[in-house]
Design a protein around this nucleic acid. Structure first.
Lengths: 188, 188
DNA sequence: TATAAAATAGACCATTCAGTCTGTTTTAAG
DNA sequence: CTTAAAACAGACTGAATGGTCTATTTTATA
């Protein structure tokens, strides 16, 4: 049944989000979704393949949902970016647990090529969207859209990765406000 | 012998830096430093205690060495910060493997209070140093030193955590250049 | 030089790990 | 209704895990 597979992906996403890849055992997963081992290994041939599926089928869509970076008619691209950054502060889980993609990236990318690849795919698609939005904006001269898009992601992800330390989204907003200031200063 | 303890800490730092906490086994550590188990457990009562010692005795000094953030006579604090950020790009390991503190933070802080505490201590000391330097600067009115210090760390750490994806320090510099621009715009 | 403490040494242990194996039940197609 | 494939079920396996235990060697000190 397809529902079983989805149930497994949900459980794995949740546990890996909190405990990381190596911190999550198959026993924990089995217990969380109350599914026998035979069933799980019917859908996934290994733990690694399973978590990679989570990256593609759970984390990727989640990132697209969190960062609403699609081009809108009659809206300056850079304003879409700014409002997207604000909206992130409303996502409590994200601000209090950190970014699931970045968490997994820190743990797995240096150590496993397949994870690095799957994670880079998501990172690049987000970065590219931001670059497109920047190119759809009236900016002062000499602004490099590519490095600026990297700067934006680096700052937002950095802020989120530190925000669990800081008590709340208030802190995230105070931090991120500097980024917004900078972005506004680049508008014509 | 004290040298044995130091050797162990070096090996653990290296392996945990690359593989993470849960990705590094005692067997790997023992092999790396070619020391029998009895000796190792003579110096450390557990893996966790050992890695916490690495945080305090290896990572903390390393961070202070990497980020040279001490107040200098006749130098604007903000210029010290800017040159420190530039200097980070010279540290190849940092830019190509990511920040060891941030790596461990992402993996362990959400899951273990002791790690969270030890890591926060370092984070706060760095942040405070930056705040002091900002207060030692002639900045335009209305700049909040606390949130700005958080913003600086978030951006630098974010850039470093993404820099392994980007081939080189060139990319780190291009990204971080936006931060420098912003900081310069805050000077009187 | 005698003696206790510090340090080295590695065999050993219980537990947990990811993954396999052999069935049984359910579902869908002819 | 028959039959094959899909799905469920969980006992079992070998390797790896962090940690213990006992014994020996080295070092420092009285």
């Amino acid at each position: 049944m397809q529902a079983t597979r989805e149930k497994i992906l949900d459980a794995v996403f949740k546990l890996v989000y909190i405990n990381g890849y190596n911190g999550t055992s198959m026993a924990m997963i089995l217990k969380e979704c109350a599914i026998p081992k035979g069933s799980l290994y019917h859908y996934f041939k290994s733990k690694k393949e399973m978590v990679l599926s989570v990256v593609k089928e759970r984390i990727h869509p989640r990132m697209n949902e969190f960062y609403q970076l699609d081009v809108e008619e009659n809206v300056e691209g850079i304003d879409t970016i700014i409002s997207s950054i604000y909206k992130v502060s409303k996502k409590e889980l994200l601000v209090s647990y950190g970014c699931p993609l970045n968490r997994l990236n820190q743990e797995m990318s240096p150590v496993d090529k397949d994870f690095e690849e799957a994670i880079n795919l998501i990172y690049n698609s987000l970065r590219k969207k931001i670059e497109v939005l920047l190119n759809n904006s009236s900016l002062i001269e000499g602004v490099d859209a590519e490095s600026l898009s990297e700067f934006i992601i680096a700052t937002v992800w950095g802020s989120i990765s530190l925000s669990p330390k800081q008590s709340s989204q208030k802190r995230y907003l105070a931090t991120i406000n500097h980024l917004i200031n900078y972005l506004k200063s680049l508008k014509i």
